[in-house]
Nucleic acid binder design. Sequence first.
DNA 1: AACATTTTTTCGACTGTCGAGAAAATTAAT
DNA 2: ATTAATTTTCTCGACAGTCGAAAAAATGTT
Lengths: 409, 409
Amino acid sequence: MKASTENLRKQNRGLILSALRRLGSVSHTELSQWTSLSSATVSTITTELEKEGILLREEQAPSAGRGRPRVKFRQNPNCAFVAIVRITSEMVQYSLVDYAGTLKDRFEEKRPPAETDIDTFSNRLKNDIQRLIERSELQPEQILTVSITTKGLVASGKPELLWSPVFEDNTMNFEDLLRPILPAQIRLTNDTQFAAQSIAEQRAAKLGGFSNRKLATLSLSHSIGLGIATEEANGKISSFAPPFGHMMHDPNGPLCRCGAHGCIESIAGFYGILRTAFEVDDDVVPAKFIPLKEIENIAVRARNGDHQSEYAFRRAGEALGIGLGRLLTLLGPMPIAITGHGTLFYDLMQTSILDGIQNTLQVRRNKMPDVSFHTDEGHLIFNGNVQSCLSDLDSNIISEQNGTKWKFN
Amino acid sequence: MKASTENLRKQNRGLILSALRRLGSVSHTELSQWTSLSSATVSTITTELEKEGILLREEQAPSAGRGRPRVKFRQNPNCAFVAIVRITSEMVQYSLVDYAGTLKDRFEEKRPPAETDIDTFSNRLKNDIQRLIERSELQPEQILTVSITTKGLVASGKPELLWSPVFEDNTMNFEDLLRPILPAQIRLTNDTQFAAQSIAEQRAAKLGGFSNRKLATLSLSHSIGLGIATEEANGKISSFAPPFGHMMHDPNGPLCRCGAHGCIESIAGFYGILRTAFEVDDDVVPAKFIPLKEIENIAVRARNGDHQSEYAFRRAGEALGIGLGRLLTLLGPMPIAITGHGTLFYDLMQTSILDGIQNTLQVRRNKMPDVSFHTDEGHLIFNGNVQSCLSDLDSNIISEQNGTKWKFN
DNA sequence: AACATTTTTTCGACTGTCGAGAAAATTAAT
DNA sequence: ATTAATTTTCTCGACAGTCGAAAAAATGTT
């Protein structure tokens, strides 16, 4: 709260690090321009960071004009590493990324289709992370963060999974699970949150601060995910992921996996669509693992004019559209990005989705928000996670008084 | 973005001003403790502010113990004034408040019950503000802000009323209206937003930073208002007011004043309750001005067991409860404060409201949020407005390099 | 009147940023 | 080759801000 000269330096160190994070490899002069700090302060800060082993001076490529050639700075890739774990319903992806954001190692492990035992799952996860560490030949202390993404409801403040489509109410604390094998900070985040973060950062980079201050990302799949990214006053993009899939759509609606009736997901998740299409009783929850093929078959029938199949998708679109309308009512109009396998069936839901959005006071008064599609959901989630992780590290670095913690180089 | 020694001073000036704003009359030592600034910097900043005419040194009351008696600082009440205008469906209240927050003058003007012409209304408003200025015998330049609260949908960024229950789609720009008569900054804000702000500030003051980071305030009346206050990381409380009353409840529901079908307000606003109670057709919108007496009569019948009257309130509660549940799903669990005349009928809606809230994933997992009642809505709105206005002034003051603008003392 | 006590101000040290000029490193010209 | 031109980076002194400690101020107590 109180401002001191120390904070001043911290903030400007942060500015330099974030410039490096965004621009990759930057010269002294460019840093000065980008941060609007004077050349003198850039000098002192960069030499400081270099001594701490966070920055590297880079030999300059043959220069274009005359004059002293620029010396470029870049992050020391080896000053920290993060493990990125992406859990999907089909597999778990393990990646190792260095401080500069380069992917150093990656492998994926399929999930057995019918496995719902949480202990089996978490033990395998633990072993696989152990394997990632061993393969890297790094010391466990060099991995500063393990950041995990998953579907479902995540606790705030601690890395605990509170509810998920597969394990339902069996909670899972990743901190407790992984503490024995490495001292890293453990993070757990809803995956669609990072998809939103990633798309928002893309747009901000392209447009230079994305004009609209908010963005919603909807993930259509077995379950329904939503992430919302906001550009704050200082230019940083923050995001969160409300359990949109379990927002009440119709109190008299079908049974949802979460135990309630009429959640959006119970109608618009793949299992909801399947249930409507096959006219299964509303109180029956279909199997947890539905092959995508099944839904594709329903879509084919719908496109061939089968009424009940058409209705299944239309009904899903209605729940999504009205839900999005409610969202926009509360948070204001914002562009909407759609990801997930469900984008394949957007043609069957479009009309009812757009109708729902349209039926909103501010949208009626102004104009329809942009709706865009992103087929590379896995990529987005991974990128968002990496960026968020490394920015976090940057924030920790600027607070470090003496570079003791950053000795790996 | 960039941090300089200038910003440093600004921030610490702000700290001093906010301490003064919260504590009223404070000594040097108390300021130092509260802000955790050193005694030396408190000295330089206070003398600076005193020279600029923003602070006054106050003679000390007979001291208690031995030692040099404390000299207290307080805001110079005459260094600025604000006009506070509160528009309700029955009247318009005009208040003049000085920089220290003291009410200097106030009068109210009744609104003719059937007046829906926006020009007549705005001309009278303009004249009444003119009168407030004249009565004060201040120069128009001494009034730095005119801050207006109203029901309805307010534009962001400019003081324009976009939609209101009375004037509907006839917009009204208060900047254009008032610019001819005074040079002040014009603000227009939804009234429930300030009710939320005010309640949140009360709690923060009482608990020292209110534990729960968010608070929703629901205003039940002819129309339905909602404000959400959030405590930011720096301790400041910010708020906003989504058009909750026009969030879709049921797409097949009754006609709303806004032109859509099934908005929460169309069921839970007084006119919605009236329509249900008297079994008026869903496509008929009842009169704009409904005497409170009418609703009280329906309530009496409901309490005496009249089924249709009971149903009218129950249905309203359902719309409100499910709506609040959706809100909590998107923004996370938070305490709920209820204001407005509608609190008189809460007994008739309680069960269905609580049911709706309860039917939310996070609420089911944790516990029911606190629901509290505040009968002094007018007071809350006024206080919230004043606090927000004066804090705004404080922020402007800290940026002033030379106190030229603050010469009235 | 001298001393004790508490509050406020002042002073020197320290940290941070900035502008301007010096130094460095290269290309182009002589 | 040497010199000049040019561009980039570093360095130095000036300035602004905060802090701790000591001095000064204002009162009560002995």
